[in-house]
Computed example of a mutant assay.
Amino acid sequence: MTGFPNGATLPSGMTVDVFAAAFEASPTPMVVTDPRRDDNPVVWVNGAFLALTGYAREEIYGRNCRMLQGPRTDPTVSRAMREALAAERPFEGEVFNYRKDGTPFWNGMTITPVRDQTGAVLFFFSAQADMTDKHRLEVAMRDANDALERLVGERTADLRSALEEKTALLHEVDHRVKNNLQVISSLMLLKARRTPVGEARDALQGMADRIGALSTAHRMLYSEGDVSRFDFREFTADLIADLAAGLDGDRTRIETEVEALALSAAMAAPLALLIHELATNALRHAFPEERHGRVAIEAHRCEDGMRLVIEDDGVGVEAATPNPSGFGRTLVEMVVRQLRGRLEWSDAGPGTRIAITIPLAEAAL
């Protein structure tokens, strides 16, 4: 092979010609340059390199490999390669080069210094590869990924817009239901005031209060940012604030210890009825004849869901004045069944204790 570098140590029995023939037959493009000559020119290439670049040997020998560079060659990569060769260090990278006909291609290369026995660099040997298809695939994948991200972004924006519209609609529904319930409650209270004292008046008053509790539930849902969940601690505090507004604080009080639980919005109305009914019943019947006392409301997460306890230190169920026309206990039992819960009535000694276990399969902390 004309111009093949001599002076390298070869395996026993292998001549330079045999070694050169093996390199010439390799499908991997190969280049040898001589840094001892001016401008580190090319002194040997194999046929695969000629096929890659489109040049003939006589057009390459004696010239620096920068002849393959062009307007789109990254100067940062070129500078890194020059610095590595100047420091007699190996270099590995990809350079945007040009063939003889001007066709650009990505040239992946490793350049290795070849030293003599004293450590002096005799030649630089470079094995190369056409990486154009790899880059083309990377560009195609990047474009496809960008298109997918745009599609996902557009779809996400559509879903966000639809969710915002749904949220606004549900808020509006809660707002209107709240207003309508307040109107109904006010009408019933007005009718109660015009009804003679007795069972009918008490019934109207009780129904108005229950409707007011439902109105409070919808008011809380209207104020929540997440229409699918509500904060049970804040919800209970709001309900109890309405109940405690008319109490004589020196005689009776309501205490709460409620864990912060995010519950399904579907549970708001039945829980409002449940807490209102049990707390109101305790306040009305547990403390007759100006008796002092307290009503405690506790709610915590438990293994089976949520444990709601309403307890008073009043006269107890047996001593309370019976109310044949009342249906508070029936209402409580109906609501507990609706919530798929368990209801336990017991003597608190003194007072009454109602414990309710409610599954929270659809709720989250």
Rank of each mutant, 00 (worst) to 15 (best):
M1S: 11
P5F: 05
N6F: 02
L10V: 11
L10S: 05
P11L: 13
A22E: 10
P27L: 04
M30F: 08
V32D: 00
T33N: 10
P35A: 06
P35G: 08
R37F: 13
N40G: 10
L52T: 14
L52V: 12
E58K: 07
E59R: 02
R66G: 08
R66W: 06
Q69S: 11
P71L: 09
P75C: 05
S78K: 02
M81I: 13
L85P: 04
R89A: 06
P90R: 00
E94S: 04
V95C: 04
F96D: 00
R99M: 06
G102T: 08
T103R: 13
W106T: 13
M109T: 09
I111C: 10
P113R: 06
V114P: 10
T118I: 02
A129F: 12
D130H: 14
A140V: 02
A140D: 10
A144C: 01
R150M: 05
R150G: 08
V152P: 01
V152D: 02
L163K: 07
E164F: 04
E165F: 06
T167W: 00
L169V: 03
L169S: 07
E172D: 14
E172K: 10
V173A: 03
K178G: 15
V183L: 15
I184P: 02
L189Q: 15
R193Q: 14
V197E: 15
G198E: 13
E199A: 08
E199Y: 13
D202H: 11
L204C: 11
A213C: 07
T216N: 02
R219T: 05
G225M: 01
D226T: 00
S228C: 04
S228I: 00
F230D: 03
D231K: 01
F232K: 00
E234R: 05
D242E: 04
A244N: 00
D248H: 07
D250W: 10
R253A: 07
R253W: 04
E257A: 13
A260I: 15
L263G: 04
A266H: 09
L271K: 05
P288Q: 11
G293F: 14
V295L: 00
A299G: 12
H300F: 15
C302P: 15
E303V: 06
L308Y: 02
E311N: 11
V315E: 09
A319E: 15
T321L: 14
P322T: 03
P324K: 08
S325C: 07
S325R: 11
T330Q: 12
S346N: 11
D347C: 09
G349E: 14
P350F: 15
I354G: 03
I354E: 11
T357S: 09
A363Q: 07
A364P: 04
